Simulated assay, not measured.
Amino acid sequence: MQVKEFLTIPDENIVYLIPEDQIISEIARLFKSGSDADHPDEVDDSTEVETICINEALKSLKTVHTFLIQQENNASGYMKLMDKIEKFIKREQINLMQQTTINKYFR
């Protein structure tokens, strides 16, 4: 059965027409989630921040470090900051690799 046959009322040869604005509002309603459609004031527009792994942070830090080395102006102050950031990231990496004991959970 084709669409035109399905929408045609027998005996009258009338095709059911849907106004375009009704189609758009119906599509919008379908794409809304069930809870948001009931409470439009409670729509959550926040974005979730992606978690970055330590190895990815270190790779990015090396890229910035290389950029600072290529600069001809006084980037030495920034290089010292880069060293501090690298030490912080490596310290966090070491802390994550340490074995956890049950005593840490009861402090």
Rank of each mutant, 00 (worst) to 15 (best):
K4Q: 04
M82N: 11
T47E: 15
I9F: 12
I69S: 06
I27T: 01
N55F: 13
D83Y: 04
P40R: 05
L96T: 03
I85M: 15
K32P: 00
E56F: 03
Q99C: 01
E12V: 09
D45H: 15
Q99F: 03
S33Y: 10
S46Q: 13
L61V: 10
V43N: 15
N73R: 11
P19K: 02
D83T: 07
T101M: 02
E42T: 11
S46M: 15
E5H: 02
L30W: 03
L68P: 00
K59G: 04
A28D: 11
I23G: 01
P19W: 02
F67N: 11
T8E: 02
K90R: 07
N74A: 01
V64Q: 05
F106I: 00
A28Y: 10
T100N: 11
E42S: 14
D45E: 14
N55T: 13
V3C: 14
I27S: 01
L30Y: 07
K62V: 08
K87S: 05
K84M: 10
T101F: 06
D36P: 05
R29L: 09
F88Q: 12
Q2N: 10
L7A: 00
S25G: 11
L81Q: 09
L68F: 01
I52W: 12
G34D: 10
S35Y: 08
K62D: 10
S60M: 15
R29W: 10
E92S: 09
I94A: 13
V43G: 10
K90E: 12
G77N: 11
